[in-house]
Design a protein around this nucleic acid. Structure first.
Lengths: 256, 256
DNA sequence: TTACAATATAAAATGCATTATTTCTAAAGT
DNA sequence: ACTTTAGAAATAATGCATTTTATATTGTAA
C-alpha cells in the first residue's frame, strides 16, 4: 500500500507525492522548499520538481516568490475561519442540489459510503491519536458522494478545492485533538437527514459538523500557543506573520 | 500598451501571455499546444513553456494528456450551462455578503467602478463587434468590486475562477453577438439595488444578467451550427465530441 | 556598528539526450 | 482492389546536466 506504482510520468509522480505530503502537513507551513532537496528526496530532475511546484502553487498549497523559490503555503486562523464559512456555503449548495436531484443511485452510494466510514477504524495509532489513511479516505469519499448527487461538475470541483485545503488544517491538528466527539453519529445524522430529503436539517447538521471541526483546530492552536508563549518567542530573530500557524516538521506517516 | 515590461521571470511572462490569449480565445478550444511552437512564439525555453502549461492545466484552461502533451481545454454547451448556474450561486453569496457587510469604502468603489464602466467605449471595432480591452477590464473590475464587499478571500477567489472561465465563452462569441442589450442599464440597476441594500433585487438582477449573457452565447452557437450544418461536416474525418464548441483560430487582438 | 564588497547558495533558463507516440509506407490477406 | 497490419521513420514530449542570473551570506574596512 505504501508504493503506488503507476505514475504516468515522473513529473506527475512527484506532484502526487509532494501534494499528499503537503496535505498531510508533513512539511511545516511556511517552510522553504528547496528544489535540489526535493530532487534528491523524490529522485527526479529539477524540471519535474519545478513543474510539480508550479501546479501546487496555482492550487494554493505552496506559494511562489519570483526569483526566490517556493515555500509551503502558510496556515492562519483567519484563513481557517474564512475557509470554513465558505465551505459551509458550498456544501449547503451541494447538499440542497443533491437532495433535490439525487436518485436511487445517489442514495445507494450514500448508504454504502456511510457503512464503509462507520466500519473503518479511526486511529492508525490510538496512543498518538493519529488518523488512519483508510479512515481519511473513507471520510473523503463519504462527503464527496453526499455532494455528488447535485450533479454539477463545477460545484463539485469548488467543493473539492475547499475540502482539500481544509484537509491541511485537519491533519495539522489531528494528533493534538483532545476532544472526544461522536463522528459516526454526526455523519449518520447528516446522511439520514439527506436521505429523508430534509434539506434544512441536513444543511444545519453539516454546518455544525464543519464548524465543530474548525473549532477543535482553533482551540488546539490557541491552547498550544498560550502555555508555550515564552518558548514560542524563544528565537525572536525571525518574526512570523501575526496570525500564522507554525509547527515543527514531522514525518512518519506514509503517503495516502 | 501592447508590451507590458515587467515579467518577474520568463516563466511568469509566458504564463501571463498564454493565459490572456487563452481567455481571449485566440487559440481554438481543443487545439493542440505544441511545446516547440510556443517556445518560438514566446521566445523562451521549453521549461518556461512547460511550467506555464502546468499552471494553466491546474487552472483548467488547458488539459494535460500524459506523454501526449497539452491542448486547449474544450468548451461545451453543457459546461457553460453548469458554469453559469454555479456562477449565479456564488455571485449571489458574494452580493448578499457585500450588501450586509459593505461599508462606505465599498459603496464608493462600486460607484467609481460603475462610472468608469459606463464611460468606457464598448467596441474597439464597432463594425467587427469586437470588445475593447478597456471595456473588458472595466467590466471585470466592476463585478469584482461589487463582490469584494463581502470581504471573504476564499469566496472572492472562487468567484474569480468562475469569472475567468466565463470569459472564455464571452470572448468566444463576442464578435458573433447580434443581440442588442443595454449593458449599462443592467449594470446600473444591479449597482443601485446593491447600494440600496436590496439583496433580493440585486441577486435577481445579477442572475438575469449572467443568464442572459449565457443565453446569447448559446443562441449564437446553435444559430451558427444549424445553418452551417453541412459545412460543419465537410470534413467528417475528424469527429468532435458531441457537445463541444469549435471555431477556427483567430488572431489580431492584442493582449489585455 | 554600519556599509560595502566578495563569496556562496540557490533559482531560472537553456539545450541536448532519451523515450514515447504518431504517421507513413509497404506487404499480406480477404 | 480494398482493407488491414506490421514495421520504420518522423515527430514531439519528457527528463537531465549545465550555464546563467539573482539573492543571501559572510567578511572586512571605515
Amino acid at each position: 500500500m505504501s508504493t503506488m506504482e503507476s505514475p504516468t510520468s515522473l513529473t506527475h509522480g512527484a506532484y502526487a507525492e509532494l501534494r499528499s505530503e503537503l496535505l498531510a502537513c508533513n512539511f511545516a507551513p511556511g517552510e522553504k522548499l528547496k528544489i535540489d532537496d526535493l530532487c534528491r528526496r523524490f529522485e527526479v530532475g529539477s524540471s519535474a520538481v519545478r513543474e510539480a511546484l508550479s501546479r501546487l502553487a496555482s492550487e494554493g498549497f505552496v506559494v511562489s516568490e519570483p526569483q526566490r523559490g517556493f515555500r509551503v503555503a502558510p496556515l492562519s486562523v483567519d484563513a481557517l475561519r474564512d475557509l470554513t464559512d465558505v465551505r459551509c456555503s458550498i456544501e449547503a449548495l451541494c447538499l440542497r442540489g443533491a437532495i433535490e436531484k439525487g436518485g436511487l443511485e445517489w442514495q445507494s452510494q450514500v448508504v454504502a459510503a456511510l457503512h464503509r466510514l462507520t466500519h473503518t477504524p479511526v486511529w492508525a495509532d490510538k496512543a498518538a491519536r493519529r488518523y488512519s489513511n483508510e479512515y481519511a479516505k473513507a471520510h473523503e469519499t463519504f462527503h464527496e458522494v453526499l455532494a455528488a448527487g447535485c450533479g454539477s461538475p463545477w460545484l463539485l470541483h469548488l467543493r473539492a478545492v475547499l475540502f482539500n485545503h481544509s484537509a491541511r488544517y485537519r491533519w495539522f491538528t489531528g494528533p493534538l485533538s483532545k476532544v472526544d466527539r461522536d463522528l459516526d453519529k454526526e455523519h449518520r445524522e447528516i446522511a439520514e437527514a439527506a436521505l429523508s430529503r430534509d434539506s434544512e436539517r441536513a444543511v444545519a447538521l453539516m454546518n455544525a459538523h464543519l464548524q465543530l471541526t474548525a473549532k477543535i483546530v482553533l482551540d488546539a492552536v490557541s491552547s498550544e500557543r498560550e502555555p508555550t508563549a515564552k518558548s514560542a518567542k524563544a528565537k525572536p530573530g525571525k518574526a512570523h506573520p501575526p496570525e500564522s500557524l507554525r509547527r515543527k516538521r514531522m514525518r512518519g506517516a506514509s503517503s495516502a
